[in-house]
Design a protein around this nucleic acid. Structure first.
Lengths: 349, 349
DNA sequence: AAGCGCCTTGAAAACGTTGTCCGGCGACGG
DNA sequence: CCGTCGCCGGACAACGTTTTCAAGGCGCTT
């Protein structure tokens, strides 16, 4: 059978090698791999055996070039934090089922790198993009849009599907939890100013306070940027207020950790002296000291759904314009009723 | 100039479009992009201008197919934890400087997925691999090895370069730090049994005890798997010993957090009642309660060096057989001298 | 003044696939 | 018994690049 088997030593086997080994045409080999129903089962089996024996792997570059499909989607993230990595894992799960790979594009919040990521589609390396941050590419001109699905953040281009979480309602529930424990002076540390998720969480916080008849004081609302450090800074400022808050709702877990850490440094105990709640429910939340009360964000599902929608879109199917996933408040030990002294003190007007 | 400009609407511009726009051959355009020194500067500038104007992006699939180089390397990791993500960031930094992309391969500790990752080279999507876990591909047969560089773990195939950290010495220093504080009963929670890094850290721990004339008791050495949960489990067992340890050196930060958490649940304070040290120095280490004493592992450098070596190898340059990076002990607040009571108690023979 | 090189560019052949178009052959109907 | 239809599988033209080969033009040396 194997007559001419030289050259296979250097680089890996090609479809031609397989065809020659079997004495069939390359079309047959190609069909065995991509459209089995076009072949007699017996032929197909023979081809597959030869493929196995020669350890042949189709060249994805050639395949993609010819077919115009890369068979991959790209997830663009602003950083490599566990939050986005779980979205990645979710996207991978869904994509693999559909026969797609997922590439990771790390923009590092750098517009140039972000553009480079988006260019991967024009370069043929990916068929479409899931983006977790609104692309500054819009500012940069009228570049034609690649097939795109957003996660968490809405695109100015209104036709781009969005998969997000119902943060507003979630944040409202978290704040209500604090109110229900008896807190009246509840502060909020905001996330990254540019993030819509941050704005929505603030909105939910406000709504809960309104509905409870508590007037949100401007000084209770403190800017942050989702970093541990910003959580620490915020707490230092907040505790300087004439009437410091008895509870703080943070727009993510990292800032909540920062808040707790800063409070410890100030000699205050969580939750006895002050309650802290976060958002995200990262892996560590259950194990920190104290375990963190936090709003669970279904990151895995977010990634899953985004991949599903993108692939639907790529295959010409209709996609939902917006998908809203529910959050869930996980009550642990960083929140408790305020100390009697605090409770007795009147809330400022 | 632009005479025939149809079709550019549907898919993106090709090298042919650019050449036609300028009235030059496609060779010229190709050269302007890949080997500028072959062109008259003026010609090159004209081409570049047209590229810009047409927003042309070379098709990486075609380029890779023709040239036999994908221009990408693949980092294979067993999970998406921050530890490996920082290695990824480091690899990206070095690779970008050399004009390579970095792909992320998530094997999820599944041999099938791992093989799929390694096949990316045979498929032409990547030119070489950095692997953070020793590939079970060896068990699976005599597959030809792709260009490979290992990180942290040595490959059975001895010719594969290894970039690792000097964990043994690091672990020894960490343990010496505990001994220096006055601890005599020092336990160790091991990492994943299959990980060589784990074995090396155990080795360093042992050596430090030996050199201090302290006989390591077998029951002080507790298995773990790098997870928070295993840290908790280990502590529960260790504290049941007749003479429980006054300090625990954990093979990573996660387990250290688990240990601290379990101790809190037992009503013990860190570091007053027991000292805890970790390995890795993850971002949270400085902000946990208490801030964690831990052995810093230069993850970013690990990734950087690995990428550098792999690219050297791909370009036919000689590469170091083994690169050893130093660790650094970061002393924070989770370690302190043992309580007087403990110190008074005699160490077991 | 002629010849020799170098510098710059063009033409064309791959790279390994997919997919279209065709032809051959067996079965079935008239 | 012959014609037609359908199923299988082969040939070959792309896909968008890089790269080799060749050629034209210009300057310098002898």
């Amino acid at each position: 059978m194997a007559k001419i088997s030289v050259k296979a030593r250097t680089s890996s086997a090609t479809i031609t090698d397989v065809a020659r080994e079997l004495g069939v045409s390359i079309s047959t080999v190609s069909r065995a791999l991509t459209r089995p129903q076009l072949l007699r089962p017996e032929t197909r089996a023979r081809v597959l055996a030869a493929v196995e024996q020669l350890n042949y792997r189709p060249n994805l570059l050639a395949r993609g070039l010819k077919s115009g499909r890369a068979g991959a989607i790209l997830l663009v993230v602003p950083n490599l934090s566990p939050f986005f990595m779980e979205i990645f894992a979710g996207a991978e799960e869904a994509a693999h089922e559909a026969g797609f790979s997922v590439l990771l594009g790390h923009s590092a919040e750098d517009p140039a790198r972000e553009i480079a990521c988006f260019d991967q589609v024009a370069s043929g390396r990916a068929d479409g993009i899931i983006s977790a941050a609104v692309p500054s590419i819009y500012a940069s001109g009228k570049r034609p849009l690649p097939p795109l699905v957003m996660v968490m953040e809405r695109c100015p281009e209104r036709t781009v599907p969005l998969i997000r979480v119902d943060d507003d309602t979630g944040a409202m529930r978290a704040t209500e939890h604090l109110i229900g424990l008896g807190h009246r002076r509840i502060a909020h540390i905001c996330g990254n100013k540019k993030a819509q998720s941050s704005a929505r969480r603030l909105e939910g916080y406000r709504r809960a306070l309104d509905q409870a008849g508590l007037r949100a004081q401007p000084e209770w609302i403190h800017p942050g940027d989702y970093s541990v450090q910003s959580g620490m800074d915020a707490v230092r400022r907040l505790m300087l207020l004439k009437h410091p808050p008895t509870a703080i709702f943070c727009a993510n877990d990292e800032m909540a950790y920062g808040a707790i850490h800063a409070l410890h440094l100030l000699g205050l105990r969580v939750p006895q002296d002050i309650s802290i709640a976060g958002c995200d429910d990262q892996n560590m939340a259950a194990y920190s000291s104290p375990p963190l009360t936090t709003l669970h964000i279904p990151r895995h599902d977010l990634g899953r759904r985004a991949a599903l929608e993108l692939i639907d879109k790529l295959q010409g199917r209709d996609v939902a314009h917006e998908v809203l996933l529910p959050t869930r408040l996980v009550v642990r030990e960083s929140t408790a009723a305020p100390a009697a002294a605090s409770r007795a003190r009147p809330a400022p007007r």
